[in-house]
Computed example of a mutant assay.
Amino acid sequence: MTGSASERRRMAAALANKGVLTLPWLRGAVESVPRERFLHPGVFLDEGRTWRPLTALGSDPDEWLKIAYSVDTLATQLDGHLAADQVSEAVAGVPTSSSTDPTTVVGMIEALDLKAEHRVLEIGTGTGYSTALMCHYLGEDNVTTIEVDPQVAARADATLETVGYSTWTVTGDGLLGHPRRAPYHRVIATCAVRRIPYTWVRQTRPGGIILSTVGSWPWGTGLAKVTVKENGTAEGSIIKRSSFMQARAQAVTPVAGDLSARTAYADSEREARVSPLRLEEWVPAFLAQLSVPGAHFVRAATSEGARLLYLFDPERADGGGWVVRQGGPVALWDKVERTLIAWQAAGNPDITAVQLRVTDRSHAYWVDGQPALRWEHRVDGGY
């Protein structure tokens, strides 16, 4: 048995012991697909403020395999262009493509409830590893995968061909789907979206499933699983917390300029009824986004070190409480605060209590039995 095969079996056993890998066919795929091949030309290892490049050719084979099967998310691109073989020393940067940790990958594939005859659309090819796992079971002709980054797409396509999966790889905006190969039984997105595009619903068969992370605030997103109905709507729930890079077309642009100067002249100021620090907790952050879709949540600090939190308007610490200063046409904090108070009054339900419905005109979210925890986002941008 080769070192790679041994590591694959070890990783499969570890995932099975965690209760993540339960399907025999998927375990067979994990034990067969060489993850290290999909990390070519290399990865970036997180060293805090910098990323250390590591390539297969420049590292000890045993070390390379240990990293490849470490059950960690491994960054494979920084700043939208930089690959590990292009630098020799640690660099600063922001990951823009990665090989997601196998626990998450396997968990999502299991949640798809795949059958051997299903046709799947994958949004976000990345390295192509998850694509290969599905091809192993469904066959290469039943999987279509879309990647927005041409460089990433080319590498994934080459690797898939090399390991024996000549599947349908497309370079383009996954938010548009791929109508040429529709309809699909399953759609799976390995990026986060602000809301599920109706194009995905339209390209999915009735009874089909769409699985995607929704939300845009860091550490405040959820994995939505919806089933498409005969009437062209899709309905389901948030099944767990989930974190993925934002779809490129929806990536949040950092708020530019001096935020304190931009928000110096507020229309109102009052004591907060709920601590804004609750927005640094996963479920409150997710629900807050439903109240103010499109708002940016920004963390900052004064020159003296006092914490500042912004929703385009600042909230600042003052003694033991928080003073909220708001300005502009929409009182964002009022909306968020009402949601947080209603959530607390309902007993702090988990993110899995959130239901959702997708139509061609709107997205609706709700928690059963809680009239104050209902939101509808219209496609035209209203809410």
Rank of each mutant, 00 (worst) to 15 (best):
K18S: 06
V201S: 13
D85R: 01
G305S: 04
G382M: 12
A158G: 02
A116E: 14
T2K: 02
W64A: 08
T22D: 05
D85P: 03
A295Q: 12
V143A: 12
E63Q: 15
P349G: 00
E147M: 07
T50P: 11
K115H: 14
A346I: 02
R27T: 14
V120S: 02
A153K: 13
Q86I: 11
V228F: 08
S243M: 06
P371E: 03
V252R: 07
V201F: 07
R8A: 14
R10F: 06
W219Q: 03
P53L: 07
D46R: 05
R299L: 10
F297D: 00
R155K: 08
S242H: 02
D380Y: 13
N231V: 10
T103H: 08
L82V: 03
A111T: 05
A285V: 01
N17D: 15
L160M: 06
W168F: 13
I123A: 08
S237W: 00
E235G: 00
A132Y: 05
T302N: 11
G321F: 06
L356S: 00
H40T: 12
V274A: 13
K115Y: 02
Q355N: 10
K18T: 02
V252C: 10
E280V: 09
A75R: 09
V330T: 13
D350V: 00
P24W: 06
G222P: 05
K225M: 03
P24V: 07
G42D: 07
V201P: 15
G3A: 13
S237C: 03
I209F: 01
R49P: 09
A5P: 04
R248K: 11
G208I: 14
Q370F: 03
T100F: 04
W64G: 09
P276G: 09
E31I: 03
S243Q: 09
N348V: 01
E89C: 12
W219H: 12
P61K: 13
G215F: 01
D62L: 14
S243P: 00
W51T: 02
T144Y: 07
R180H: 12
H81P: 06
G80M: 14
D72V: 07
Q355R: 15
W322Y: 10
G305L: 05
E280W: 11
T190A: 13
E31L: 01
T50A: 09
E269I: 02
S59M: 11
P179W: 10
L39T: 04
T50Q: 14
R262W: 11
G382R: 15
P197A: 14
T159L: 07
L160V: 06
G128S: 07
R195D: 06
I188E: 08
R186H: 14
C135S: 05
G257R: 12
Y310M: 12
G19K: 06
G139H: 07
L15S: 03
L160S: 10
R27W: 05
S242R: 01
R262P: 06
T167Q: 12
W168E: 11
G124E: 14
S166C: 13
